[in-house]
């Protein structure tokens, strides 16, 4: 499971480096996200722009991560493809996650709340 980490003005940007987030990698994905987010209680952007397919186990890993954050407003998803965005919509998780086309927009959003 490849995820790279980058910091910009108080926002942790996690760039997922896999095109597929499925049951084979979801447990590792969940643990990595929870470790980053739980350790730092920080403002987080999860960049999914290279992900072409995510299944419900991958989505479950993101849900687990948002539970660890201090507030759902401090976590945002960037760059979801149409297929990934469809999964969020179908499961209504688009009501939980703030979603933005680009990392810059997502980072601006998570910087806003107190």
């Amino acid at each position: 499971m490849r995820i790279s980490e980058e910091r910009a003005d108080g926002v942790l940007v996690l760039r997922v480096g896999e095109s597929r987030i499925d049951a084979a990698c979801a447990p590792a994905f969940r643990d990595m996200l929870a470790a980053w987010i739980g350790r730092q209680a920080t403002r987080v952007v999860i960049d999914l722009s290279v992900v072409t397919i995510m299944d419900s186990t991958g989505l479950g890993a993101l849900v687990a991560a948002v539970k660890v954050a201090d507030s759902a407003r401090l976590v945002a998803v960037a760059g979801a493809s149409n297929a990934v965005a469809t999964l969020f919509k179908l499961t209504r998780m688009d009501k939980v996650f703030q979603m933005f086309p680009t990392v810059a927009e997502a980072a601006a959003a998570v910087r806003q709340p107190a």
Binding site: S56, T57, V63, K67, K95, V96
Partner: peptide, 12 residues
């Protein structure tokens, strides 16, 4: 899915 009750959100 109730955004106000994050702990209850389904993971599977």
């Amino acid at each position: 899915v109730d955004g106000r009750d994050r702990a209850a959100l389904p993971e599977g």
